[in-house]
Design a protein around this nucleic acid. Structure first.
Lengths: 251, 251
DNA sequence: TCAAAAGTGTTCGCGATACACCCATGC
DNA sequence: GCATGGGTGTATCGCGAACACTTTTGA
């Protein structure tokens, strides 16, 4: 219990440097084994899993906060990050309730009765992320399959759901998602990614033609590793050409 | 100056009932004379125009706040309202600066140094809105052509710009915008609206075929008012059939 | 040698585009 | 009646879907 109060002091210090009515929650997407995954963590004392999130320093842009929080959690520096919605239901959060759940009496509570959370989603390369629970408040941190997401803290299930919906919509009108793959990838892997996210299978030939027609994929040499049968080409994503493509297609 | 302090007292009372680090700003779109317009207002004492906005009561959902603020401003009850972005730059707002601009010395300031604003855009029927400056803080309220928007308060130009971008994108993948027209309208009027928002002209015949193919427009009788030449049909937007359409096309 | 997966080419159908033609109305 | 704009029909084009065929590899 003493340890709990020490941790509580650290949290309070952090909280006092931050905006009190706002927080940032991140839905971190990764792709592995033809499955879309999201990164969840469990806070010490809590029985529920939650999205990685945090507070916004008083002197910091909200977007900066999102990058910082994600950096702290995944160790990644350059991340595709996108704000998608602010969650502002009056009863979505209750500081006093959190405190009482981890056994802190109400007179020690410093968290506000309500907070609005700004949701960001991130696309990261699965293999580069070393899920770590290295801050003093986190007990566990790991990837979850989308279909297996448990009951989460507060409205985090809704936040994750909205993030996925937004991500799907963005895939429909913009070729993104390269951030979810390693630097070198095959077109089949890219196709699996698209199929998983958009939730439907597509024709191999048509997909390859369409992707290559964008002009920002560069073909490398063959791969032979492990896989039986014909070795597929590896491709690299050319960011410059992609930027040029985006410039032509507004946005 | 005494009057200013009286008003200031009212504002302070309101502020004390509200969240302090958050606000809502609304970009209200209307359509008139083949022009897309937005509703702007000028606060007493300020030299700049701004978006209609307000604070969120401590016991109120953010979305409720947006509806309430809009209702107070336009008198409209049912409005198409959509959250589109949260604006969280550290320096986007400064309470102390506002106060000093209207001549309030710093020791009377009660506004925070920073606030994050959640942006909503609304689609309303131009003719139903009676722009009114009937609260004690508003000096003037009127419609502005998009091309003539002046320099606005804080980052409101950016907010309006982002709203327009989001609106355009939504028009691309969803037939909306009926909220911008009166109950009965001609297909030509609907086309002009689409052309204005999407920023390009379209073929008359093709537009009509496409719109009618959706199946949620109901043709009424002719109109003959004023207009020379052949009288175009009037149409009504069938909300039930529209809902059915949306159900089929996900979302 | 054969199965399975990768790469490439061909065909088909639909929707968007362009355009032509007829109809109604005010001057 | 004629100019102008509204309503409807038809030809064309491009893209995506479907599918067939060839190539490459491991077992």
């Amino acid at each position: 219990m003493d340890e709990l109060f020490t941790v509580l002091g650290d949290i309070k210090t952090l909280f006092n440097q931050s905006l009190s009515e706002l927080s940032v929650d991140c839905v971190v997407f990764g792709f592995h084994d033809n499955q879309l995954k999201i990164l969840l963590l469990k806070t010490k004392g809590s029985s529920e899993w939650s999205l990685p999130g945090g507070w916004i320093y008083k002197t910091e842009d909200v977007e900066q906060a999102a990058y910082r929080i994600l950096q702290e959690r995944t160790g990644l520096d350059s991340i595709y990050l996108q704000q998608f919605h602010a969650f502002g239901a009056n009863n979505r959060y209750n500081g006093k309730e959190i405190m009482s759940r981890v056994g802190i009496p109400p007179e020690y509570n410093f968290l506000p009765e309500r907070a609005v959370s700004i949701g960001y989603y991130a696309l990261v390369e699965y293999s580069l992320v070393e899920p770590k629970a290295d801050d003093p408040f986190t007990e566990e941190c790991r990837w979850w399959d989308l279909e297996e997401i448990p009951e989460l803290l507060f409205d985090h299930n809704q936040i994750a759901h909205t993030a996925l919906k937004t991500l799907r919509r963005q895939f429909d009108y913009q070729p993104i998602g390269f951030n979810l793959l390693p630097e070198k990838f095959t077109l089949i892997e890219l196709q699996k990614l698209h199929e998983t996210i958009r939730g439907r299978s597509m024709d191999r030939g048509n997909f390859q033609k369409k992707m290559l027609s964008y002009g920002f994929l560069e073909r490398l040499e063959e791969r032979k590793t492990g896989g039986a049968h014909k070795a597929p080409y590896l491709y690299r994503f050319d960011e410059e050409k992609y930027a040029a493509y985006l410039r032509l297609n507004d946005d």
